[in-house]
Design a protein around this nucleic acid. Structure first.
Length: 205
DNA sequence: GCGACAG
DNA sequence: ATCTTGTCGC
């Protein structure tokens, strides 16, 4: 699959998009609105769930749910082709513009520095962050308090945090930076994964 | 060349 | 992601 001409084409598209990714600080002030988006699959059926949260109160302001059909399989590194279109559609259906998007997957912690969170951030013109349960590439340099940096070729591309035995990986998608990730951890009491977990439950309800 | 590989 | 029973642990 990696040698497939189509894979090379879409990977090239990804490299071009990566050039437009902007990593800069987005300060997450109290009252900020974060939209967590996730999807569930069964064959070609895709069900999407999106929850607009207000932080740090963790209040759900709006929920969006819909389903559709996908035409792309899951291919490591090209996840954006499978879930990207649906995440963008979920964004479009919101009645309120979120200040930040939280997507299931990686942002710049990606071989081509443009994972799902980066591309959805670019396409929607909205700051975005990715959160994943597993690394696609890179390694973690653990620090104190169950926190660590995700490093890729000597560069910090994300933050890792441990909750009990589980580890989650955050990485900037677009218009955000590492500091933004730490602020997100602050505003969610160290549990940003709860935001997407709720979106995932909504998707399969 | 070999293995690893977001959801 | 999803398919799935019992089981380990707080």
């Amino acid at each position: 699959m990696v040698r497939d001409p189509l894979y090379k084409f879409f990977a090239d598209v990804q490299r071009v998009l990566a050039r437009s990714v902007e990593l800069r600080h987005l300060h997450l002030a109290d009252g900020i609105r974060v939209c967590a988006i996730d999807a569930s699959y069964s064959e070609n059926r895709v069900r999407v769930g999106a929850v607009l949260w207000e932080l740090p109160s963790m209040t759900a302001l709006e929920e969006v749910r819909f389903s559709g059909t996908t035409h792309f399989p899951y291919i490591p590194g090209l996840f954006y082709l499978r879930e990207g279109p649906f995440a963008a559609e979920a964004f479009r259906r919101l009645s309120v513009r979120p200040d930040l998007l939280l997507l299931e997957g990686h942002g710049v912690a990606h071989p081509r520095r443009a994972g799902l969170a980066s591309i959805v951030g670019l396409v929607t013109g909205t700051p975005a962050v990715g959160i994943a349960k597993r690394l696609l590439c890179g390694t973690v340099v653990w620090g104190e308090g169950g926190r660590g940096w995700v490093e890729l070729k000597g560069e910090r591309v994300g933050v890792a945090y441990r909750v009990g035995t589980r580890v989650y990986y955050l990485s900037p998608g677009h218009m955000t930076d590492l500091e933004t990730l730490l602020e997100l951890l602050d505003l969610t009491g160290g549990r940003p994964h709860e935001l997407v977990r709720r979106a995932h439950e909504l998707s399969r309800s």
